[in-house]
Design a protein around this nucleic acid. Structure first.
Length: 517
RNA sequence: GGCGGGAUAGCUCAGUGGUAGAGCAGAGGAAUCAUAAUCCUUUGGUCGGGGGUUCAAAUCCCUCUCCCGCUACCA
């Protein structure tokens, strides 16, 4: 069990051969929001990302580039580390599977499975139809008959090849996995994905080939010269490497493991089936949760190499700004479902939600105070019921958003926040401080105080989603950094101190104006 | 083929038995503190088709049509 109040969240390790696109950015961004949320909520957080650097493709790419595989990885993994900087990720560690600590962890995990004495790893033969030309294995059902014999779908000739391989006895784990899913109904989210995984497991499991002898770029299997670990055993282990495995008594491990894994739906099975089985076989606790998210389409079309419609994250950030991009991808699609990334939709969110609803709310209140309230935090009188209502709604966001974030429902968390932003705008109109200025200045001050305090709470809870913009709003309210910006401060102390000087207000979310044709 | 999910306002979706909802878009109005922002009102749906159960069905059952996901070793 992880320590109480601790939270460990991981992105997948990205395949180092890939070029980062919006899909990678999205996965990490969701993790980043959860990591930031829980830190602000007073928990100890470990947020891990990294790169997957082994495998035949990397070996070949390095060769093609005329480089040593390690030097090649050093270069291309930088693309993903740069992404962290660009998107403002707050990851605590960035693991690379070519690091020595990872080799140690993988070999230790392997040995632990063997030491458990259940014969879960055994030596067999990996066999299949291989096309030298395609450099790929094909399943029997994929092959096409031709006069010259069996052919790959590409038309390339195939040959039956066999190589010695270690296998993981996954077939023996069906019942234990199903029992685990039953005992942990939230282990796989969203629920639809859980159903898919369970039906997959119920349909029967085959043993898994977990080593290769046909190439070299990988982690050596202990006591088995010529064998290197096959991708998944190597890659998945990164999640425990980073918390100190094999030292399961280490502070990091006892504090943080088990983790919440956020993955794309394409790799759900590996995380929700193979990984818990590996761990249980080695006597290590399985992960706490695996959450699978969906895919982005771009202007209604699937992202693909042939269409060349991958969106480089840096272009988006340059065009719209970092926080608007963060907001858009988290708000636009239900986390878990597929969604479309379109210029139109970004503009609508940016101008409608950010500039009009939130940005204008902050600006109308703060500039009113700057002009009519001596530029200070107003001094409130007794609160009226409608004041209490607004303040109560904004304070309640702490609990409601936490409940949403706990289930990875980041879009509904934002919905909750925007509901209160709407309340605040309606409150401004209903109270009409511009009228109170002439009729009842004391009441005006109370109204403005209620508004600044509501905005303070809204900005605090928005920090995980839009760290820079939310921070700027808090700056404009003269909220000191530190505990005053923790989520706990939404409920009570420290509050805004009447009379505190406020800086000159500046717009936080400018409208996006389309370049005129 | 098998298993699972879905089809609700122009768009994206919420809504599991009791007089159809939200956001955006559209129309009209109010206000003028504010980033021509905000607020109010409002147009709009035979809840995919058909059948059934029920006093009552978007909601339960049957059936049809269409869409999507999963159906293993592709990093």
């Amino acid at each position: 069990m992880a320590a109480p109040g601790a939270f460990y969240i991981t992105t997948p390790i990205y395949y180092v051969n890939d070029v980062p696109h919006i899909g990678h950015a999205y996965t990490s961004l969701a993790c980043d929001v959860m990591a930031r949320f829980h830190r602000l909520d007073g928990r100890r957080v470990m947020f891990l990302s990294g790169t997957d650097e082994h495998g035949q493709k990397v070996e070949k790419s390095a060769e093609a580039a005329g480089m040593d595989p390690q030097a090649f990885c050093d270069r291309v993994s930088q693309n993903f580390r740069d992404l962290s900087g660009l998107m403002g990720y707050s990851n605590d560690d960035f693991i690379r599977t070519t690091e020595e600590r990872h080799t140690r962890a993988c070999q230790a995990l392997w040995r632990a499975v063997i030491a458990a004495g259940n014969d879960d790893i055994y030596l067999g033969k990996y066999a299949g139809w291989y096309s030298v030309r395609d450099e790929a294995f094909y399943g029997e059902d994929e092959l096409v008959d031709s006069p010259a014999g069996k052919r790959a779908p590409s038309g390339a000739p195939v040959e039956w090849v066999e190589e010695p391989s270690y296998f993981f006895r996954l077939s023996a784990w069906q019942d234990r996995l199903l029992a685990f899913y039953d005992a942990n109904p939230d282990f796989i989210l969203p629920p639809a994905r859980r159903n898919e995984v369970m039906s997959f497991v119920k349909s029967g499991l085959r043993d898994l080939s977990i080593s290769r002898t046909s190439f070299k770029w990988g982690i050596p299997v202990p006591d088995a010269p010529g064998h290197i670990m096959y991708v998944w055993f190597d890659a998945l282990t990164n999640y425990i490497t980073a918390v100190g495995y094999p030292d399961t008594a280490s502070a990091a491990f006892t504090t943080f493991w088990p983790a919440t894994h956020i993955v794309g739906k394409d790799i759900l099975r590996f995380h929700a089936v193979y990984w818990p089985a590996f761990l249980m076989a080695a006597g290590v606790a399985p992960p706490a949760r695996v959450f699978a998210h969906g895919w982005w389409t771009v202007e209604g079309q699937k992202m693909s190499k042939s269409l060349g419609n991958f969106i480089p994250p840096h272009e988006l950030v340059a065009k719209y700004g970092l926080d608007p991009v963060r907001y858009f991808v988290l708000r636009e699609l239900p986390f878990g479902a597929d969604g479309d990334f379109s210029h139109r939709a970004v503009i609508n969110r940016l101008n409608g939600d950010l500039a009009n609803d939130l940005g204008n709310l902050v600006q109308r209140v703060l500039s009113f105070i700057a002009k009519n309230g001596d530029g200070q935090v107003p001094n409130p009188g007794a609160l009226a019921p409608e004041d209490e209502k607004l303040l109560g709604a904004s304070a309640a966001l702490h609990a409601t958003t936490r409940a949403r974030v706990d289930r990875q429902e980041l879009h509904t968390a934002l919905e909750e926040i925007w509901r209160v932003i709407g309340d605040a705008n309606r409150y401004v109109d209903a109270q009409a401080p511009w009228t109170l200025r002439k009729t009842d200045p004391a009441r005006m001050a109370t109204v403005l105080y209620a508004l600044t305090d509501a905005i303070r709470r809204i900005a605090i809870v928005l920090q995980p989603f839009m760290p820079t913009a939310a921070g700027r709003i808090l700056d404009q309210l003269a909220v000191p950094t530190g505990t005053a910006r923790q989520l706990a401060a939404m409920g009570g102390e420290p509050k805004l101190v009447p009379g505190t000087a406020l800086p000159k207000p500046e717009g936080v979310f400018p409208r996006y104006v389309e370049a005129s044709a």
